[in-house]
Design a protein around this nucleic acid. Structure first.
Lengths: 201, 201
DNA sequence: AAAGATACATACTGGTTGGTATGTTGTCAA
DNA sequence: TTGACAACATACCAACCAGTATGTATCTTT
C-alpha cells in the first residue's frame, strides 16, 4: 500500500457514509448492515472491526454525520451579531433552494431517525433531543440579542419562537416527503418567512 | 356461542386495533405480527385468516383506523359555514388539550407511518398522500369560503395556508415526540393560533 | 527481524420472522 | 343430516440477519 497510515481510517468513513445513506431510505430497523457492506465490496469482518454492534453504527451516524451537519448553521447564528430575523429568513431560503426532489423524497435525516427511534431507544432519543434543544436555544438566544439590538419586537416569546421555527421546518420536510413535492416544501418555507416578518421591529 | 353471526368479525377488529397500537410504538417494520396476536391469546391461524400478509395489515390499519380518525374533524369543517379561523383555532385547542404525555411520546400515527413507509412502499405513500391532501384541501376551501363571507383577509393564500397549517401541527408532534414534552407541543399550538390570527379580517 | 497489533476476509450459528400447510370445530343452508 | 364453509389452532419451514470465531496479510514497533 502506498497510503501512509492515516488513510486506513478511510474505510470506516466510507462504511459510515453508506450506512447513513441506507438508513435514510430504509430506516434504522430496516438497515441490513451486512448487505450494505457487501454492496460496497467489503465484508462483515471490516464492519465489525470498526463497529461493535448495530446500535453503534446508528450513534456514529448520528454523532459524526447528522449532528455536525445540522449544527453548522446554528453555530454561525450564535456568532452573528446582526439582525437575527434576516439571518433565519436567509437560512430558510437556503434550505428551500438546496432541497432537491430526491432530498425531499428521502426526508430530513434527523427527523426520520427521531420519529422511528425515539420510542424504541432512549440512547438515540436523548442524543437527538440534545440536537433539537441546541438548535431551539440557538434561535431563541439570537432573538433575545435581536431584542437588545433593536431588531426584534420586545413582545416576541423567543423560546416559543425558536421551537416553532424548527418544528415548522421539520413539519414541512415531513409533509413534503409524503406528497413528494419539493414545491410544497418551498411554499411552506415561504410562509414561515412571512411569519417571522411579524416579529420584526 | 351466543353471538349471532355478525359479531364474529369482532376478532378482526381486535387484532387490527392491537396492530395499530404496536405499529405506533415499533413502526411497521418493527411490527412482529405473530407476537402481537400471541400476546392477545390468539394464534397466527386467526391472523392469516383475516389478513393475507403483513402489508395488508398495514393498509387496513391505515384505512380503517387512522384515516377515519383524521378526516372526522375536517369533514365537520367542510360543512361549517361560520368563521373558519375560529374553527381551526378551536381545533388546535382541542388537539393541545387532548394530547397526553403518552400520546406525545408515541407521536402522530399518520406521521409515524408516513415518515417510515413513504420511501419504501408506494402503496402506503399514495394512501397517506391522499389523506394529507384531503386535509389541506378542506382547510383551503374553508378559508376561501371565509373570504367570501368576510371572515378572512383577501390576500391570504388559502392553499399555502392549508398546507402550512397541517405541516405545522405535524412538525409540532414530531419535535414534541423527540423531546418528550406535551408542553412543547402546546406551546407550538399556541403560536400557530396567533399565526392564524394574522389572516383574520 | 521478531513480535505484536491492525485491518480486514471467510465461515458459521442461533434466534427470529413472515408465511404456509394442514387439522379441527362450530355454523348454516339445503 | 349432510355437505360446505367460516373461524380458528397447531406445526412446520425457509430465509434472513445480527453477531462471533477464526484465519491471514500487512503494517508498526522495538
Amino acid at each position: 500500500m502506498y497510503l501512509c497510515g492515516m488513510n486506513t481510517t478511510d474505510t470506516r468513513e466510507r462504511i459510515l457514509h453508506q450506512m447513513f445513506t441506507d438508513i435514510r431510505k430504509n430506516g434504522f430497523q430496516g438497515l441490513r448492515a451486512d448487505k450494505v457492506v457487501a454492496d460496497m465490496g467489503i465484508t462483515k469482518g471490516a464492519l465489525y472491526h470498526y463497529f461493535s454492534n448495530k446500535q453503534e453504527i446508528g450513534t456514529a451516524v448520528l454523532d459524526e454525520i447528522i449532528r455536525p451537519n445540522y449544527l453548522a448553521a446554528f453555530r454561525r447564528l450564535d456568532q452573528h451579531a446582526g439582525d437575527p430575523i434576516t439571518f433565519l429568513q436567509e437560512h430558510i431560503d437556503h434550505l428551500a433552494q438546496a432541497a432537491t426532489e430526491e432530498d425531499i423524497a428521502l426526508g430530513c435525516p434527523l427527523n426520520n431517525l427521531a420519529q422511528e427511534m425515539s420510542p424504541l431507544d432512549e440512547t438515540f432519543r436523548l442524543r437527538m433531543k440534545h440536537i433539537v434543544e441546541q438548535i431551539e436555544h440557538s434561535v431563541a438566544a439570537a432573538l433575545e440579542r435581536g431584542k437588545v439590538n433593536g431588531y426584534v419586537r420586545e413582545d416576541a416569546d423567543s423560546k416559543a419562537l425558536g421551537r416553532f421555527f424548527f418544528s415548522s421546518i421539520e413539519g414541512a420536510y415531513s409533509m413534503a416527503k409524503v406528497i413528494k413535492s419539493a414545491e410544497a416544501f418551498r411554499q411552506n418555507m415561504q410562509l414561515l418567512k412571512t411569519f417571522l416578518q411579524v416579529y420584526r421591529l
